[in-house]
Amino acid sequence: MKVYINGKFLNQRITGVQRVAKQYTDLLLKTEHNIEIIENKYQGLMAVFFEQIILPWKTKDGILINFCNTGPLIKTNQILFIHDAAFMASKSHSKLFRYYYRVLITLLLHRAKKVITVSDFSKDEIVKYFNFNVSKLAVIKNGMDFEDHIEQDIPDVRNKLSNFKKIVLTVSSMDPRKNLKYIAESWIASNPSEDSVLVIVGGKNKVFADDSVSIEHDNILFTGYVTDEELIAYYRSAHFYVSASEYEGFGLPIAESINFGCIPLLSDIPVHRELFGTYGYFFENDSKQLREVFANLPEYTMKKSAITESETWKSSVNTLIQVLRETNEI
């Protein structure tokens, strides 16, 4: 049977969810299976109309894979990826967004043939927040390798970092639950040396109720949104990666940073322990503890230097193909 991919991510700015969709799609297209991407070229309400009305008609002769949390309500022969339950657990999103997602996801969870999430923690959260048949829910963890290994030098990134010998990186949308302001304030309080810099990569998103982080310091670099090429250059240049997030479904930038040799410094939350327990150093989310971590960076060394075969995107895709076989769709 034909396998369709909801290609809405092709017309969206690439963040974590879209990157997951891209990694899966690129590898699925290299398999022998009959795969077709249905691109959604619209924005706003027209994009919603296309997904809800046009997409199910275009995919009526096959199964549809939705990698980006939403899909058409009138189609039952579909696989739905739900990456986390942040829209239920956190109040960082706007009230309108939370209400819309709560209604939409509740309906989709019950209509989809199979629901996939990216960690055991997210599975438990989905079960907790929704009256849901857990037998329809599977966990496929994201890969930790970065398929787009771009070798070219990026002069702009190199020039921005040329005066620094110790680089701490964080990659995130300006979501309040990511605690970027707390990271920046802790960094300043640690009295960083002149050759040290905290690099904050990420752009604003209108779905968040408050996404303002406005701190200026000689040893902090706010890049805004960057291209994949620039992001890889920052990963390659960094020595440490920090995440002080209060809530995650996975934490893809952490995985990517580990792949490029960064030492992860992570808030002590369940999903970080589950996925990166053998790689990371953990701290409680209070200003004093993170400040002390930053002040003692030379004490932290790489715990584990190589990802395993089961932590690759190839493994994730193989597991997804097995799910398709179990649903008799390929």
Results as ranks from 00 to 15, higher is better:
Ser196Met: 10
Ser243Val: 07
Thr223Phe: 09
His217Cys: 06
Asp218Pro: 03
Ser212His: 09
Asn205Met: 03
Val213Lys: 06
Arg236Asp: 12
Ser214Met: 05
Val207Phe: 08
Ile200Met: 08
Phe208His: 14
Asp211Gly: 15
Lys204Ala: 07
Ala244Ile: 05
Arg236Gln: 13
Thr227Tyr: 14
Glu216Asn: 09
Val242Ala: 01
Asp195Val: 06
Gly224Ser: 12
Ser214Gln: 09
Asn205Trp: 06
Glu229His: 12
Tyr235Leu: 11
Ile220Gly: 05
Asn219Tyr: 00
Asp210Leu: 04
Tyr235Gln: 11
Ile232Gln: 15
Leu198Lys: 02
Asp218His: 10
Ala238His: 04
Thr227Met: 15
Ser245Cys: 12
Ser196Glu: 15
Ser196Leu: 01
Val201Asn: 01
Ile220Met: 07
Glu229Lys: 15
Ser245Tyr: 12
Val226Cys: 15
Lys204Thr: 05
Ile215Thr: 04
Ile215Lys: 04
Ile215Tyr: 04
Asn219Phe: 01
Ser196Trp: 03
Leu231Met: 14
Val199His: 06
His239Gly: 08
Glu229Trp: 07
Tyr225Arg: 11
Ile220Pro: 04
Ala233Lys: 11
Lys204Ser: 09
Gly224Leu: 13
Ser214Trp: 00
Gly202Asn: 02
Asp211Tyr: 13
Gly203Ser: 02
Ser196Gly: 01
Ser237Val: 02
Leu221Gly: 02
Ala238Ile: 03
Leu221Trp: 08
Ile220Arg: 06
Ile215Gly: 05
Ala209Gly: 04
Ser243Lys: 08
Asp195Thr: 12
Ala244Lys: 05
Phe222Arg: 09
Ser245Lys: 12
Asn219Glu: 00
Tyr241Pro: 01
Leu231Lys: 14
Leu231Gln: 13
Ile232Thr: 15
Ser243Phe: 09
Val242Trp: 05
Ser243Glu: 08
Ile220Thr: 02
Phe240Ala: 02
Phe208Trp: 12
Ser245Asp: 12
His239Phe: 02
Glu229Ile: 11
His217Trp: 08
His239Thr: 00
Asn205Asp: 15
Ile232Phe: 13
Asp195Pro: 07
Ile215Trp: 07
Val242Thr: 05
Ala244Asp: 05
Glu230Trp: 12
Glu216Met: 02
Gly203Lys: 03
Val201Ser: 02
Asn219Leu: 03
Asp228Ala: 14
Asp210His: 13
Ser245Met: 13
Ala244Pro: 04
Tyr234His: 13
Asp228Arg: 14
Lys204Arg: 09
Glu229Gly: 09
Asp211His: 12
Ser196Pro: 00
Tyr241Asp: 02
Ser237Met: 10
Glu229Ser: 15
Ser243Ala: 10
Lys206Glu: 13
Val207Ser: 13
Gly224Thr: 10
Asn205Arg: 10
Glu230Asn: 11
Ser214Leu: 07
Tyr235Asn: 10
Val199Lys: 04
Thr227Ile: 12
Gly202Cys: 00
Lys206Met: 10
Val242Gly: 01
Gly203Leu: 03
Leu221Lys: 05
Phe222Ile: 08
Asp218Val: 01
Val242Arg: 03
Asp228His: 14
Val199Gly: 06
Glu230His: 14
Tyr235Ser: 08
Gly224Gln: 10
Leu231Asn: 11
His239Ile: 00
Tyr235Trp: 11
Ser243Cys: 10
Lys204Val: 03
Leu221Val: 06
Lys206Tyr: 11
Ser214Pro: 00
His239Ser: 06
